[in-house]
Design a protein around this nucleic acid. Structure first.
Lengths: 235, 235
DNA sequence: AACGACACGTGATTC
DNA sequence: TGAATCACGTGTCGT
């Protein structure tokens, strides 16, 4: 049949037409030129109804092929690495690319989870640091101080649950802030306090109200406080 | 031709064979049964050489089709959402999936970048907090204190570069630690210090040595210190 | 010449 | 029935 030859009006084929088709890729599912040519050629030819229906099926088949080819072209335009300008190769490259993307996605999600957990641990540690009630929060500047060396400690009751506390420590490993931290830590009701620096020593004198404690208990509490403060420091 | 019918030995076709092929998907690019059948059938029939070469091309074409179909099957097994068990639909679904993956990848990378920058800013702020030399490091427990409300400030020189400083503030927004932080911040040489709590107020009295400062400069320095401490708090 | 890739038309098959 | 999908063999083109 010579009309079949008309369908082969494609010349210099899948090397040039691929790129031309890429431009008008937007769903031109209409009848292409070859289809129109064949239709106008066969309609005056075959008079019986079977010829018309055959034309319809041929046209449908042609359209279906075009659909598939366009899909493959589109797939090729999306996949970045194309090994060969081949239909099967395009699909294989797409498979590789999809697997690559899937693995990359898993990797990225793992990375995010890792970062999130790191960040969560950082935040929780910071939260713990800020909300600890049993341990005082040391100001960072005193973290690296040497332990407080208690030279003398005196606790004396002056009646009505009031006490006079006097303690002395070396100046080089004790500061006003340190002492304040100790006092804050053991949580006393301070009436007055006095800090005096004399001859390389620091003398700390305070009057506190501690009605529920004996002088011995108060003394132990202060010693424990200093011990805890020392334990919280890095030395 | 009756031998062409032999090639159609597939029955209940692409509904069942698809899933059977999926199991032996691992590169069985060998000759399939239909090809062997056709080959053994046409070799005794046609004696001339053209029949053999036609067989070869037919077999090659058959092989090429199988390759493409297997590729599409594999693609279908990878893509999670398949709308229809159709060749073209499979490719279209693959296109959609690839685009979806690409967008997801971009989104994940953006998310990672965002988290990283957040984390970096957190770390840098923490670094700033710990290593700032001009600003004192507040102990976390006083961060959320209200600003210190200075009710009275007195600076009096007592000779030889020694000063007596006395200041008063409200008890509810001032503590011993706060005052210590102010004193630490302005970095004075403290000789003696006294803190007294009276009638809802805190009285802070200290004797300092500041030979290089006038009493006005010292006063400004203290005010600046309180201002800075207040500025560092969250209020 | 020979091979690989393709489109085509067609018969078969399923819904 | 009829539309949709498929596999098949074949002719064509480029390498």
């Amino acid at each position: 049949m010579e009309d079949e030859m008309e369908a082969y009006q494609y010349n210099s084929y899948w090397e040039t037409k691929r790129f031309l088709d890429n431009e008008e890729l937007n769903q031109s599912w209409g009848i292409n030129e070859a289809c129109v040519d064949l239709g106008s050629l066969t309609s005056p030819d075959g008079a019986e109804s079977s010829g018309a229906v055959v034309n319809k099926t041929v046209e449908n088949e042609r359209n279906r092929r075009k659909k598939m080819n366009d899909s493959i072209c589109r797939l090729r335009s999306i996949v970045p690495r194309i090994s060969k300008m081949d239909k099967a190769s395009t699909i294989r490259d797409a498979i590789d690319y999809v697997q690559e993307l899937q693995e990359q996605e898993r990797q990225l999600e793992g990375e995010i989870a890792e970062i999130q957990s790191q960040r969560a641990s950082e935040i929780s540690s910071s939260y713990e640091y800020n909300n600890c009630v049993n341990y005082p929060s040391l100001s960072p500047q005193t973290w690296n101080f040497p332990p407080i060396e208690l030279l003398e400690l005196n606790v004396q009751e002056i009646g009505d649950g009031n006490y006079i506390i006097s303690m002395t420590c070396n100046k080089k490993n004790c500061s006003m802030s340190s002492m304040c931290e100790v006092i804050d830590y053991i949580d006393l009701k301070i009436m007055t306090s006095n800090i005096t620096a004399v001859s390389g020593h620091i003398m700390f004198t305070l009057t506190v109200k501690a009605e529920e404690l004996t002088s011995l208990q108060l003394r132990e509490k202060i010693e424990t406080g200093i011990f805890m403060i020392n334990g919280l420091r890095r030395h």
